[in-house]
């Protein structure tokens, strides 16, 4: 019973943080949501993996968030506006709502494919995957792109944890997550892009 409640809470956390990540414009809040998102993912992964191994995902995610946070410009410049269409929060919220509906509808099918997954795990991982993809599709900024990729990977890792528990895979996925964060940090440290007039 308690496990179920915690799993529901994790899925709820993933839903709220992934949507918030999509509409948030401040990098501080985005990184906070990303960190909380990893907490939800950690719980879902721990349903299949030993707590110590699942904790690797959590710690990796938090280090990735910290790396991205440390590489943000130090000045008090306002957060750069998204240059890709569409920019409106309302649009993103509506798109997220549509994605949530699609995810809910597809959970039974995916659970059929992967019988070792519980419905809640499927729901949580699909939410992460689809919100990450939505994020990638509405952004052209390096920071946002890395957030989207980390979200997609978090969703994939939650799904994959149910079918693969190799230490080597866990280690390589951790390296990939950290590598993505480092790439993000590197891209953030380069001069900002000036939009070419076309």
């Amino acid at each position: 019973m308690l496990l179920d409640i915690l799993s529901w809470a994790s899925v709820g956390l993933i839903l709220v943080t992934s949507v918030a990540l999509l509409i948030s414009q401040s990098w501080q809040r985005s990184l906070l949501f990303l960190s909380l998102q990893y907490l939800g993912m950690f719980w879902l992964v721990s349903l299949h993996w030993p707590m110590t191994m699942a904790a690797v995902k959590l710690v990796t995610g938090w280090i990735a968030a910290a790396a991205l946070g440390m590489s943000q410009p130090q000045s008090d410049q306002p957060t750069s506006k998204e240059d890709a269409w569409p920019q409106g929060r309302l649009f993103r919220l509506l798109a997220a709502g549509l994605v949530v509906l699609v995810v809910i509808a597809s959970v039974p099918t995916v659970t059929d494919w992967l019988p070792s997954l519980h419905t809640l795990e499927t729901l949580g991982s699909l939410l992460l995957l689809s919100m990450g993809l939505l994020h990638l599709s509405v952004t052209a900024r390096p920071f946002r792109t890395i957030l989207g990729l980390l979200t997609v990977l978090a969703g994939f890792e939650t799904l994959y944890a149910a079918v693969e528990n190799s230490i080597m895979v866990a280690a390589m996925l951790a390296v990939i997550n950290l590598g993505l964060a480092m790439v993000g940090a590197y891209l953030l440290s380069t001069p900002p892009r000036e939009e070419a007039s076309e």
Partner: peptide, 13 residues
């Protein structure tokens, strides 16, 4: 010393 362009981000994605 160069800004990241869209192609690199697409490559990564």
């Amino acid at each position: 010393d160069s800004p990241p362009q869209r192609g690199v981000l697409r490559f990564l994605i």
